[in-house]
Amino acid sequence: MSIKPPFRADVVGSYLRPDYLHTARKDFAQGNLSQQELTAIEDKAITELVQRQKEAGLSVITDGEFRRSWWHLDFMWGLNGVEKKAIDSGYNFSAMKTRAESVQLTGKISGENHPFIEHFKFLNQFAEEGIVPRLTIPAPAQFLKELEREGNREQTQAVYPDVKELIKDIAAAYRTVIAEVYAAGCRNLQFDDCTWGMLTDPKVQQSAAQAEVAQHASCGCGHDHGVVAENGLESLLNKLLEVNNLALDGTPEDLVTATHVCRGNYRSTWAASGGYGPIAHVLFAKENIDAFYLEFDTDRAGDFSPLAQVAPGKKVVLGLVSSKVGELENADDVIARIKEASRFVPLENLYLSTQCGFASTEEGNNLTEEQQWAKIALVREVAKRVWE
């Protein structure tokens, strides 16, 4: 069995936190627990999680993102030139809003000595033959859009009047992090990226395109503003592609890179709805990664036809088993959908996973730990029936 990711039975990476970890994080936030004490509790929870992942028969292990509050913001806060910021309103989801937190620039961005390097070193001690540790981090495009969101844009432009310089420094910071985590032993890096997933939604496409046009109207980026005004969405897609690919420039050949495209995953709710068609010609055809982890768990994701635009040889991990609900899918139905997807991507380049993580934020989705592991067991069962 190959130990090179992706795996026929795979996962996105975050897991439900045990109750004692929730308690510890609350105690720490209230000043009743030291950082050293919290770290020791996190170490214990991660050690137990890794053992459970191995017992479940997975070939990939993660730390479950147990040291994080968010799947993305904690990483951004760990970059130099970035600080945590309270905002007026959180992200809008279908049934609720998230906590109101974001990022703010304090100066130029760089990536030296990121705390996630030490986090990975702790995970890497559990590597063994046939078991690959994976680090999950938000994509450079996700960071760029966070800096450009309403309420953050003014401070970002104060530090970076030219968006080209912003993109250049984001990419350079990521390359630094990649080099340092590679030196720490990482050979499987996953970029989680809601920017593309959100742009599958027609309403988001329209507002994002308008925002892109407005931003270019007042910036010193050197782009042809007439072209941007004619197709703001296409300009935005190419900007997201540019920062992601620039960050990946020079990546070591034996570092497997992947991206997970998400439409939002917060306490079992979602933020966007739409098929991959509007983004496929850029993301699937041009992003310089090895594998795409894609949500296909509901009709909101559309059909498989956009997969025809995946560049030859790229891997596609089908997220057909929902991490949002406890109800277990029917194995035969999942197998039928894999066969349907193989009309557009050869079966040998297809893999199976849960549609997203089980806890993109520390609150977690609305299912039990038992249901979480039953989902993973189903992924394993289906993978064996299809590919072994």
Rank of each mutant, 00 (worst) to 15 (best):
P6L: 11
P6G: 04
F7I: 08
R8A: 05
V11W: 02
Y20T: 06
L21C: 01
D27S: 13
F28L: 12
A29M: 02
G31Q: 11
I41M: 12
I46T: 15
L49A: 08
L49Q: 10
L58F: 10
V60L: 11
E65A: 06
R67E: 10
R68F: 10
S69N: 13
D74F: 05
M76A: 15
W77A: 04
G78Y: 03
G81E: 00
V82H: 01
E83Q: 11
F93I: 06
M96V: 00
L105R: 09
H114M: 05
K121C: 03
L123D: 07
N124Q: 14
E129R: 06
G130M: 13
V132Q: 13
T136W: 01
P138N: 03
A139M: 01
F143T: 12
L144W: 08
K145F: 08
N152F: 02
R153K: 14
Q155I: 15
K164Y: 00
K164S: 12
E165F: 02
I167E: 14
K168I: 00
I170R: 05
A173G: 05
Y174P: 05
Y174V: 03
R175F: 03
R175P: 01
R175M: 03
I178W: 09
I178S: 09
E180R: 01
Y182P: 02
Y182R: 05
A183N: 11
G185P: 12
C186A: 12
N188P: 01
D193T: 09
T195M: 15
L199W: 04
P202F: 05
V204C: 00
A208Y: 11
A209H: 10
Q210A: 15
A214T: 04
A214Y: 01
H216D: 13
C219P: 00
G226F: 04
V227Y: 07
A229M: 06
A229F: 01
E230A: 15
L236N: 01
L237K: 15
L237M: 12
E242A: 15
L246C: 00
G250C: 02
P252S: 04
P252K: 08
T259S: 13
T259L: 06
S268I: 10
W270V: 14
A272L: 11
G275V: 03
H281Q: 14
N288T: 06
T298G: 04
L307K: 07
L307N: 08
P312D: 14
K315P: 02
G319R: 06
S322H: 05
K324M: 02
K324N: 06
L328S: 10
N330T: 13
N330H: 09
N330D: 15
D333N: 10
D333R: 05
V334H: 09
I335Q: 14
I338D: 08
A341P: 05
A341S: 10
S342V: 08
V345G: 08
L350T: 12
Y351N: 07
S360Q: 08
E369F: 05
E381S: 14
V382D: 11
K384R: 15
V386C: 06
W387D: 12
E388Q: 13
